[in-house]
C-alpha cells in the first residue's frame, strides 16, 4: 500500500476542512488507515486553516513532517506558499489561482506575493506545479462554494481511488440538492489536470 501525505491549506470559509473530511472517508472506504488533523486560527472565519491528512497502511502521528508532504493542495496562494517548506522535493502542488489579501496588504503595509514569486517558491521544491482556476470555475458554475469539490476533482487524478468512491464520499458530506452541481465541479476539476 502506498502512503499519501496531503496538506490542504486555505482561508477560513473556503471549505478546505470539509474537503479533507471527504478525502478521509474516501480513503477509509478504500481500505486505508487514515488520520486527519486541522489547525485553525483563533477566529471562525478569515484566519488561515490547514489540514494534515495522512493515508497509509498504518498511520501514527497525525502531523506530517516538514519536507514529507506528497501533495500540497492550496485553496489560496499566500496560504500555500506559507507552507511550501512542507512539500517534499519533487512533490505535487495544486494551487487555486486566487488571492485573498490579508488586512495588512489592503492597508498597504505588506506585500502580497506575485504569481512569479509563487512559482519561484514552489519551484524550489518541485516542477510539478498545477495553478488551477478553481475560484473562477466555481463562480462560473454559479456557486463559489463548489471550489472545494473542484479542488478534489483535481486531486483525484493523483490518488488511486475509484470515482464511485469519491461520489459516495461527497454525498456523505453534502445535501442532496447540491450534489449534481458539485459533481459537475468535480468533473471540471478532473479536466483541469492534464
Amino acid at each position: 500500500m502506498k502512503k499519501f501525505d496531503l496538506l490542504l491549506t486555505g482561508v477560513g470559509g473556503q471549505g478546505n476542512i470539509l474537503a479533507s473530511d471527504i478525502i478521509g472517508d474516501v480513503a477509509l472506504t478504500a481500505g486505508y488507515d487514515v488520520k486527519k488533523t486541522d489547525t485553525l486560527g483563533m477566529a471562525q472565519r478569515g484566519g488561515s486553516v490547514i489540514s494534515h491528512l495522512r493515508i497509509a497502511a498504518q498511520v501514527f502521528s497525525p502531523l506530517i513532517k516538514e519536507g514529507e508532504v506528497d501533495i500540497l493542495i492550496g485553496f489560496e496562494k499566500l496560504e500555500t506558499v506559507r507552507w511550501a517548506n512542507y512539500l517534499k522535493p519533487g512533490g505535487i502542488a495544486i494551487i487555486n489561482n486566487y488571492a485573498i489579501p490579508p488586512l495588512s496588504v489592503n492597508q498597504g503595509l505588506e506585500h502580497y506575493p506575485t504569481d512569479a514569486e509563487v512559482k519561484n517558491i514552489i519551484g524550489q521544491r518541485t516542477d510539478k506545479l498545477y495553478l488551477v482556476d478553481g475560484s473562477q470555475k466555481a463562480a462560473e458554475l454559479g456557486n463559489a462554494r463548489t471550489l472545494n469539490i473542484f479542488m478534489l476533482g483535481c486531486l483525484s487524478k493523483f490518488l488511486p481511488f475509484e470515482i464511485k468512491d469519491w461520489e459516495v464520499g461527497i454525498a456523505l458530506h453534502l445535501p442532496e440538492r447540491l450534489l449534481k452541481l458539485n459533481m459537475t465541479a468535480f468533473e471540471l476539476g478532473r479536466k483541469e489536470i492534464r
Binding site: V11, G12, G41, M42, A43, Q44, R45, G46, G47, S48, L78, E79, V81, R82, A84, N85, P101, P102, L103, S104, V105, E110, H111, Y112, P113, E117, N120, I121, Q124, R125
Partner: peptide, 15 residues
Amino acid sequence: ISIPAKLPMRPPLLC
C-alpha cells in the same frame, strides 16, 4: 526554501 519577501501574516479578524 528561500522566500523573496516576508510573507504577510493573516491574524484572525472580526467578521
